[in-house]
């Protein structure tokens, strides 16, 4: 329990750091971009929008610390300001429309990739110098060297454009009616298949290598040798004895990989015009919609922190030593 609380404290600290970066970033930049922003939008935006923008940045005449506290208070109430590009929609509302899609796409891609990659790592380590150990890692490293979004472009070109096997973009067909029906679910899965596969392909190699390397060093340890000497079935030695312990570094990496994969999936979304956070983020960048941009950063950060805490829970279950240290 102590362990979990300490981790929770750390994530709160990280969330606070993200909020602080969000607050000071516009104020630290050379030439005060907030003012130049207002100057640029003068005439294009109505005064109400500019006022909303000022309020978003907390750019009042109050002293800095008071502005800071006001901005923190707003965020705590779920108020992320007003979007410029989608004026007068609040940022929180705009983000809400895309968040589900991103979590669905990136989340399932990470889980699928982790499961397959880790299993392949076990296979590669157990049958040392077999097919899974000799050519699979270097192939996957080569695939992993491509930028996510480039692989997505190539897949879209070959499988979507030339062969016509997959839809060319978006989360579901124009004529589909959203709802919990089989037809709609199948449609969504068909649209998600290609983006998800590209993310899985790029990230697979990392999981495989981490698992393989830890597994190899564990296979030489005494308790595994003893298990084998006792005559336990191979599958039991490989999975229950070696793999369970070898999983620990991979699980630690899982939390950190999450931010990375989310970043990559943002880029993949753009290639597939997938209506998630990445798509919104690019719209925000191109329209210089700073409140929306910062809101997306904040929401993504909070999602990553929350998942990291869940990963800590899993770690606690996997590794009894953390439990003992906590009590």
């Amino acid at each position: 329990m102590h362990y979990l609380l300490r981790r929770l404290g750390f994530y709160l600290l990280a969330a606070w750091a993200a909020l602080t970066i969000n607050f000071f970033l516009p104020r630290l930049m050379p030439g005060d971009p907030a003012s130049t922003l207002f100057a640029r939008f003068k005439g294009k935006l109505d005064p109400a929008a500019i006022e909303a923008l000022r309020a978003t940045f907390g750019l009042t005449d109050a002293p800095l610390w008071r502005q800071y506290l006001t901005s923190l208070g707003h965020v705590l109430q779920g108020d992320l300001g007003v979007s410029i590009a989608y004026f007068p929609s609040p940022v929180a509302e705009v983000i809400g429309t895309g968040l589900g899609w991103t979590l669905f796409l990136a989340g399932s891609a990470v889980i699928v990739s982790f499961a397959i990659g880790t299993l392949l790592g076990v296979v590669a380590a157990w049958w040392r110098r077999g097919w899974a150990d000799s050519w699979l890692p270097s192939t996957l490293i080569f695939v992993g060297a491509f930028p996510y979004f480039w692989l997505a472009m190539a897949a879209l070109y070959v499988l979507g454009f030339t062969l016509g096997w997959f839809p060319l973009g978006h989360a579901y067909s124009d004529d589909a009616v959203p709802g919990w029906t089989w037809a709609f679910t199948a449609d969504v899965l068909r649209h998600a298949a290609l983006p998800m596969t590209t993310i899985v392909l790029v990230t697979l190699g990392g999981w495989l290598l981490t698992m393989r390397n830890t597994m190899i060093s564990l296979l030489g340890s005494d308790y595994v040798n003893l298990a084998r000497a006792k005559g336990l079935p191979s599958a039991q030695v490989a999975l229950r004895y070696a793999a369970r312990n070898a999983l620990l570094p991979s699980v630690t990496g899982f939390g950190m990989a999450l931010g990375f994969v989310l970043g990559g999936s943002l880029l993949t979304e753009i290639v597939f015009s997938y209506p998630g956070q990445g798509y919104l983020l690019v719209q925000a960048v191109r329209a210089q919609d700073y409140p929306l941009m910062q809101g997306i950063f904040l929401v993504i950060t909070l999602a990553v922190l929350g998942t990291n805490w869940l990963v800590d829970l899993i770690y606690l279950w996997l590794d009894p030593r953390t439990r003992d240290a906590g009590s």
Binding site: L13, L25, M29
Partner: peptide, 23 residues
């Protein structure tokens, strides 16, 4: 350590995008 762990857990690309957009 806390400082670098915080930076480690913040998602890199979104942060990079937000900073780059201001510069």
């Amino acid at each position: 350590s806390v400082f670098s762990n915080v930076f480690l857990v913040l998602p890199g690309l979104p942060l990079a995008i937000v900073i780059a957009a201001y510069l």
